[in-house]
Simulated assay, not measured.
Amino acid sequence: MSLLEAGAELDPQAFTITRADLVRYAGASGDFNPIHWSDRVATAVGLPGVIAHGMFTMALVARAVDTWTGPGRTVELGGKFTNPVVVPDDDQGTRLEVAGTVKEVADGLATIALTVTCEGTKVLGLPKAIVRV
């Protein structure tokens, strides 16, 4: 079966996210919201701890899609943030995993249903990618 045939299961991609990654992303993006670096602030607003930036999470999802299909093929990428990606204050960080199943290939495009989890918990609802084949 070709990598982008309907029904193909794509090899899961795993990413480790540490607090140092969040600091670097904050600097690159300009998003210095303290929920991404301060446990005190994060818990004060009802979060379970410091969380990864949503767009950093989506960038890792995009990296997984590029690994499967090659860079520059993504036409659409989306999903709804349903659970936070909590990043502990240690050197191990947390693990984000992206899996995919090709649902349809038509008119030069493949639709990939994604599963995005952090430590076994789904963090995106209805995530999908549409890519050029």
Score class of each variant (00 low, 15 high):
G78L: 14
D39Y: 12
N33G: 04
G78M: 11
D31F: 01
G72M: 07
A59Y: 00
H36V: 08
T67K: 12
L60T: 02
L60A: 01
V41E: 14
G79D: 07
M58K: 14
V45C: 01
H53L: 09
A59F: 02
L60F: 10
A52Y: 13
V61W: 05
G30N: 08
S38R: 15
T67E: 13
T74M: 14
V61F: 04
G72E: 10
G46K: 08
G30F: 07
T74Q: 11
R63H: 06
N33H: 13
L47N: 06
V45A: 11
V75T: 14
V45L: 02
G78Q: 11
S29E: 03
R40C: 07
L77S: 10
S38L: 15
R40A: 12
V50H: 08
L47F: 10
V45E: 02
I35A: 15
G30K: 12
G30M: 00
W37R: 13
A62R: 11
A62G: 11
I51V: 08
G72Y: 12
P48D: 12
L47C: 03
S38I: 12
V65M: 08
T67V: 02
G78K: 08
G54V: 14
T67G: 10
G30R: 09
D66V: 08
A59P: 02
H53C: 06
V41W: 12
D31M: 00
G54Y: 15
A42E: 14
R73F: 03
P71T: 08
L47V: 06
G49Q: 10
H53D: 10
A64T: 03
G70E: 03
V65D: 06
G79A: 13
V75S: 01
G27N: 12
A44L: 07
A64V: 00
M55F: 11
V50F: 06
E76L: 12
G54E: 09
G79S: 14
V65Q: 05
P34W: 05
G70K: 06
W68A: 00
A62I: 04
W37V: 14
V75Y: 06
T69M: 04
M55L: 09
G72Q: 05
T69R: 01
G79V: 08
N33I: 11
I35N: 07
A59Q: 01
V65C: 09
D31N: 04
A64S: 03
T67P: 05
V65F: 03
V61Y: 05
D31S: 02
W37C: 08
P48G: 13
V65W: 08
A42L: 09
G27F: 08
L60Y: 04
P34V: 04
G46T: 04
G49L: 12
A42D: 12
W37F: 15
G46M: 03
G79I: 12
T43L: 14
L77P: 10
R63I: 01
D39I: 07
G54T: 00
T67D: 02
I35W: 03
W37L: 13
R73K: 10
D66A: 13
L77D: 10
A42T: 10
P48T: 13
V75C: 04
V65P: 05
V41P: 02
V50L: 04
P48L: 05
T74R: 11
F56P: 00
M58W: 05
T69I: 03
W37P: 01
